[in-house]
């Protein structure tokens, strides 16, 4: 074997063998920060946190990218950008949804809620947020907005869940700090607060 190889040749080899070491190209395509050749960007209207927002969205752009980088809603976090961790969870028509795994163009008719939209205008926290504060549910906090939105979605569907049901309901959200027990305490407290 020739001990010297170029990066291009290596990548061709990897592709030919079917092995993929990472998904970085998908990540940057999803960020939609430049106009791909031949593509047509469109101004679309999104309903986010009860407000209609007009935004320029690339065809392949994910909702997480739009929220974070176009609308400045950085409460929605990207932990994996491939539907594994749930840090980017938002509500679409009350359903917890991984914002990294849906295209923004498919959200045109949806009602999108992010963690920034939960507080009352006077600053009163949503019961889930209040429950999480009282239970000191977050640790590092990076997964917290996703946990909050998953819990809000759960409680809308089931206002008085058992602890087991809450565990099932939040199972799509990873907390690497391992604060699951404290998040469940927070959900149960939120159900009490109502």
């Amino acid at each position: 074997m020739n001990p010297q190889l170029t990066r291009r040749r290596f990548i061709k080899g990897v592709i030919a063998s079917g092995a993929v070491a990472g998904t970085t190209s998908l990540w940057y395509a999803a960020n939609g920060q430049s106009r791909p050749a031949g593509a047509v960007e469109r101004m679309i209207r999104l309903n986010v946190n009860g407000q209609d927002r007009t935004v320029d969205v690339a065809p392949q752009e994910t909702l997480a990218s739009t929220l974070r980088y176009k609308l400045g809603l950085t409460g929605t976090k990207l932990g994996c950008n491939r539907g594994e961790c749930g840090a980017c969870t938002v509500l679409v028509d009350d359903v917890p949804t991984y914002a990294c795994s849906v295209l923004t163009h498919s959200m045109k008719d949806g009602r999108i809620e992010t963690v920034e939209g939960l507080e009352a205008p006077d600053g009163t926290l949503h019961p889930v947020q209040q429950g999480f504060v009282e239970a000191l549910s977050p640790q590092c906090g990076y997964c917290t907005p996703g946990q909050v939105m998953a819990a809000v979605g759960l409680l809308r569907a089931n206002p008085n869940p058992t602890r087991e049901q809450a565990r099932e309901g939040l199972a799509g959200n990873i907390c690497r700090c391992g604060s699951y027990d404290s998040y469940l305490d927070g959900v149960m407290r939120a159900a009490e607060i109502g």
Binding site: G75, T76, E116, L136, P138, T144
Partner: peptide, 15 residues
């Protein structure tokens, strides 16, 4: 209540 908790549950704290 540690002072950063509210920022974590509202998404306001910045990474």
């Amino acid at each position: 209540v540690p002072p950063d908790v509210a920022g974590k549950v509202t998404g306001r704290i910045k990474y």
